[in-house]
């Protein structure tokens, strides 16, 4: 298939996944605000979200220091036109890439793309109250799920599909790494606390933003132990939002695409796979933050190799 179309299928999936994951993150954060600790200011509540969204510097540049408030962040992350990671921007680019690949996606998918963009573009126009935003996030998650259902049920299992899967898994892994990294830091400021049980609400929020709360509870019966959470989110092969799960599925997509004469991609992906093949002990020995940073670096090498060998 055309390199440019492969690129668009890949990014189409990434932008939709990013929009959906961001909505989930925001939704959970809003819910937990209602009952948050009294001494926790709005700054503390929303800064991590800006960090995960990689838009903190842009936000500060736009609104100044000490300006973080619920209503502003809601607006900025949801509808910010000049925020390249806002939900609106993601959905716009999702549709733009779908338009480029219009002749490769099914009619059902295309109609859904249009519906998603038009309805959310409309709903993101007015000022967003917390309540309206909450409903909007839930609705967007439903739409993303529905869209991925259409992909599964109407799309030919060829290269285009494989690039779509590759993009989706890549973005999901990326969001999981960043969510874990940022949240972990806040919840566990002091490494000496690694062995102690943690704040129930904070950890529940983290797991819920990854849709993994119930599964975690079934797997680990003790209180929330940092090592358990990290192990679950990074290494559990059955948890669909774990990093190892996403990486495994990137591998299946790459197999369909074929890696003949694509040495850079092959090598970069092998390195990434190797990193998620260890044990939680190894991760903590290296330091979780360092481990996650190095994961992000490996992922960006994979992305670079893909761009070099497939998208140009």
């Amino acid at each position: 298939m055309l390199s440019r179309i492969a690129d668009s299928m890949y990014w189409m999936a990434r932008y939709l996944e990013r929009a959906g994951e961001t909505a989930r993150l925001m939704e959970i954060n809003l819910l937990y605000l209602v009952e948050a600790e009294e001494d926790m200011g709005e700054e503390d509540k929303w800064r991590p979200i800006l960090q995960i969204n990689s838009s903190e510097p842009l936000y500060i540049e736009q609104f100044g220091n000490g300006s973080i408030s619920t209503s502003r962040v809601l607006q900025f992350i949801s509808a910010g036109r000049n925020n390249p990671s806002s939900i609106r921007t993601c959905l716009r680019l999702f549709r733009e890439n779908a338009r480029v690949a219009r002749d490769r996606i099914s009619k059902e998918m295309w109609e859904a793309v249009n519906e998603i963009w038009m309805s959310f573009n409309e709903r993101l126009k007015g000022p967003l109250s917390a309540e309206r935003a909450g409903n909007l996030f839930v609705e967007l998650r439903n739409q993303v799920a529905r869209f991925n259902g259409l992909v599964a049920s109407t799309m030919m299992r060829g290269e285009a599909y494989a690039f779509y899967q590759l993009g989706g898994c890549f973005e999901r892994a990326d969001m999981t790494v960043r969510t874990l990294d940022v949240k972990y830091h806040i919840i566990l400021p002091d490494l000496s606390m690694v062995g102690s049980a943690l704040d129930y609400y904070q950890w529940a929020a983290l797991l819920k933003s990854l849709s993994g709360f119930e599964a975690f509870r079934r797997n680990y019966h003790s209180a929330f132990m940092p090592a358990d959470v990290a192990e679950f989110v990074v290494l559990n092969r059955d948890f669909p939002r774990s990093i190892v799960f996403s990486v495994k599925h990137m591998g299946s997509a790459l197999q369909i695409i074929g890696l003949e004469n694509k040495d850079a991609t092959g090598t970069a992906f092998a390195n990434l796979s190797e990193m998620v093949g260890g044990t939680s002990q190894q991760i903590f020995d290296a330091g979780l933050h360092e481990y996650l940073e190095s994961l992000l670096e490996k992922m960006s090498l994979v992305h670079g190799a893909l761009a070099e060998e497939f998208f140009q």
Binding site: M1, L2, S3, R4, A6, E159, I257, F310, Q312
Partner: peptide, 15 residues
Amino acid sequence: RDMVTVNDIVYLKTT
């Protein structure tokens, strides 16, 4: 930009 010409033959750049 998806195409190139080599020796008077036009090609598509594919994956």
